[in-house]
């Protein structure tokens, strides 16, 4: 049990917090048809993260967060500039900017390798979920022991803090986020600015993407944003229930994905383990597939069955 607590538990925490903070915001992205904003932001923050890393020489540090936030703001401005100056449709402008920013990040990364700094490309793409360890933990009672808790890895503490802030913000502005997502015109007539809450959402998405980045990597962040929300959307029409369901799905994917990655291969006779971050996203994807097929009322199978019965 000690080994589980010291090596597996902190990784599970990382995965759960990453999935939870991204999954919660994903609900609003999916509703606003901005699902690919998560995709774009997780790509564009890469150069900022690399530059922040060059200053601090540590992952999960404040310079990295600042760099990523700066990169996100730069690219939002760039997208807007290209759209205005060039009369280009938003999807194409986004495509130009996010591929370019990612390319800048990749070239910078390769350059840093010559400088003998360790932050490799695989880390940026895959994340590093398994590296979290909590050596100070000896028993489950340490969960309530402040000094042991403070010895949790920096990644976990950062992500936990970010999750808490995001959850509180979503709860505090739930009504505003809901109205601006469903009916921007109504929101504006009620005196709730759709622009301000649109921007707030983008900022929160950027923060969540950056915080989750070092745990699960830049591409799997997209799965965290979209899959839990899409799964919940198949199951319900009420936004409140959708938020709860998506959080549940996110937490389940985080736990089940990690456990499957760590313990399934040995059971099947493989040596070693597979990527935990990848497995979490695969589990989230499978849950979404199941919901798309078998969800009551909206699932494909359910609808076919009803169609046959009524005809």
């Amino acid at each position: 049990m000690d080994i589980f607590l010291q090596f597996d538990f902190p990784s599970i925490l990382l995965g759960v917090f990453a999935a939870l903070s991204c999954g919660l915001l994903g609900n609003f992205l999916v509703l606003r048809r901005q699902a690919l904003m998560g995709d774009a932001i997780s790509h564009v923050v890469l150069p900022g993260i690399v530059i922040g890393f060059l200053f601090s020489h540590a992952t999960a540090s404040w310079p990295m967060l600042l760099g990523a936030g700066g990169a996100a703001i730069v690219s939002v401005l760039l997208i807007e500039l290209i759209r205005r100056l060039g009369n280009v449709e938003p999807g194409a402008a986004m495509g130009v900017v996010f591929t370019t920013m990612f390319a800048v990040g990749v070239v910078l990364l390769e350059q840093t390798q010559t400088a003998g700094v360790h932050l490799d490309v695989e880390h940026a793409l895959y994340g590093n979920l398994e590296s979290a360890i909590w050596l100070e933990a000896y028993s489950w009672r340490d969960l309530f022991n402040l000094s042991a808790l403070s010895a949790l890895p920096e990644d976990v503490k950062l992500l936990a803090g970010v999750s808490l802030v995001l959850i509180v913000t979503v709860l505090a502005f739930f009504k505003e986020l809901k109205i601006t997502s469903f009916d921007p015109l109504l929101a504006a007539s009620l005196g709730i600015s759709p622009q301000i809450f649109g921007l707030l959402l983008i900022v929160m998405v950027a923060v969540a993407a950056v915080a989750a980045f070092s745990a699960v990597g830049s591409i799997l962040v997209i799965a965290m944003f979209i899959c839990p929300a899409a799964t919940a959307r198949m199951l319900t029409d009420s936004l409140k229930i959708q938020l709860w369901l998506s959080s549940l799905v996110a937490v389940f994917a985080g736990v089940a994905g990690y456990l499957a990655a760590a313990f399934l291969p040995p059971m099947l006779g493989f040596d070693g383990s597979v990527s935990a971050a990848g497995m979490i996203a695969v589990v989230a994807g499978l849950l979404q597939l199941a919901a798309m097929l078998f969800a009551p009322r909206y699932g494909v199978v359910w609808r076919r069955w009803h169609l046959q019965r009524s005809s």
Partner: peptide, 20 residues
């Protein structure tokens, strides 16, 4: 689910499977 969501889902879960 709309096209954006579909693209995001396929993109990330296929990539995740590849990573595994």
């Amino acid at each position: 689910l709309n096209e954006d969501t579909a693209i995001g889902t396929v993109l990330s879960t296929f990539f995740a499977l590849g990573m595994v």
